[in-house]
Design a protein around this nucleic acid. Structure first.
Lengths: 146, 146
DNA sequence: CGGGATCCGAGACGATACTG
DNA sequence: CAGTATCGTCTCGGATCCCG
């Protein structure tokens, strides 16, 4: 696999002392303001994106099944979220022209890779939630609950 | 049946109608609307939370170092983000009463665990960014760019 | 059932100014 | 340097109505 985003560097210009920037060999640096990966990361980690991917990680789901699983999401936001994820190639949409209409949403292989990491994070947060709650109580006590 | 009635249940988790949830034994289900873990997850995965934790994963940083590392963040949002993360017990703030003032932000052990998973996700997205961009181009082409 | 279109309020966000 | 306070903008997101 070649990296298409790699910029050709002339030997004359490639001064070996690029010491100001510890380049980590990544073509897409999410820390840079204009990097497209920041947008995708926000789709993935956004309020509804994360939960949607998490729900689909268990298997294919239909629109209203997703709505029920992701408690509290509105039709609009779910639709919007699914569009963004589909556009980014993380979710596959399969519509069947039956009546009543039936549409299944599934993770793509790429989406599965991402959601696996995401789930790991979600589970980690869930498991450590008691620590978080204790830290919050301590913080609020010290600061007078702001 | 694993319904161990004695599993450590915190007083904070009061709403428990567990008749419909059979898939796991997690006390804090992020898919539930009122679960506090959802808030913490949003702090962690939010636009600035994720990048802040990612930046701190490499080591302790000062306020303005963070500002420079997390490209594009405003003082206000960085401050706000750090407060939320500190309150959740993910970031430790250490102020030294020197002149000029010096404040270091460090990940707590818990924060480190979380940021490790987060970084895994971030790196995954960065590495697969070319696939994402290709998927987007295909999507936009098919749909006529919306 | 599976959505799209529209309205509108709340909160996120950035720029600026000010403090210690 | 390390923030807080205030203000204006602008997006997010829910409610509602509508369609195939």
């Amino acid at each position: 696999m070649d990296s298409a985003a790699q910029t050709a560097v002339t030997p004359a210009q490639a001064s070996a002392d690029a010491d100001d920037r510890d380049f980590d060999a990544l073509a897409f640096d999410v820390f840079a303001r204009n990097c497209p990966s920041r947008g995708t990361l926000e789709h993935v980690t956004g309020r509804w994106g994360a939960l949607t991917l998490g729900a689909l990680h268990e298997g294919s789901l239909r629109f209203n099944e997703l709505r029920r699983r992701v408690d509290g999401v509105s039709e609009k936001m779910l639709s919007q979220t699914l569009h963004a994820l589909e556009r980014d190639g993380l979710v596959h949409r399969e519509a069947q022209p039956t009546n009543p209409p039936r549409v299944d949403y599934t993770l793509t292989p790429l989406g599965h890779e991402v959601s696996e990491r995401l789930l790991s994070l979600i589970v980690c947060v869930e498991e450590r939630m008691e620590d978080v709650l204790r830290a919050r109580a301590r913080y609020d006590e010290t600061r007078g609950a702001r």
